[in-house]
């Protein structure tokens, strides 16, 4: 049981720590972080997601949306996962439903493909 609790705690700590890091950083590293962009020079559907999450964690929703709306949905998905981990198997109304999760995933695809087509 302790092992199970540890795995949940580790996953929750990784998510919370990751989001907190974005919030605490004053600026993103000046080096390109995307291997695909470096190798091909092409913007993929998720290009700008890191910058969008950084902007969102600093309260700038408009900038996050402009970089890539996928970043906003990814933060929502991570927060949902934190809620699910805290619930520890108990049912969570609306947020924990399969429909809500599927809708978030669909938003990622719609925003990603739209962003990809607009950049070409």
């Amino acid at each position: 049981m302790g092992f199970l609790l540890d795995r949940r705690a580790i996953e929750a700590a990784l998510i919370a720590g990751g989001l907190a890091t974005f919030a605490l950083l004053e600026r993103l590293p000046a080096v390109p972080l995307c291997v695909l962009k470096l190798a091909t020079g092409v913007d993929c559907p998720t290009c700008g997601t890191t910058r969008a999450i950084f902007s969102l964690m600093h309260g700038d929703v408009a900038a996050a949306w402009a970089f890539n709306p996928v970043g906003i949905v990814v933060v929502a998905i991570l927060l949902r996962r934190l809620v699910m981990l805290a619930a520890n198997g108990r049912r969570v109304a609306v947020v924990g439903s399969d429909g809500f999760g599927a809708a978030l995933l669909m938003l990622v695809f719609v925003f990603g493909v739209t962003h990809f087509l607009a950049a070409r």
Binding site: P45, I77, R81, G101, L104, L105
Partner: peptide, 12 residues
């Protein structure tokens, strides 16, 4: 988490 797995395969 199915949604996270979907995002990892669909985005990363």
């Amino acid at each position: 988490d199915p949604v996270l797995m979907g995002v990892l395969s669909g985005c990363l």
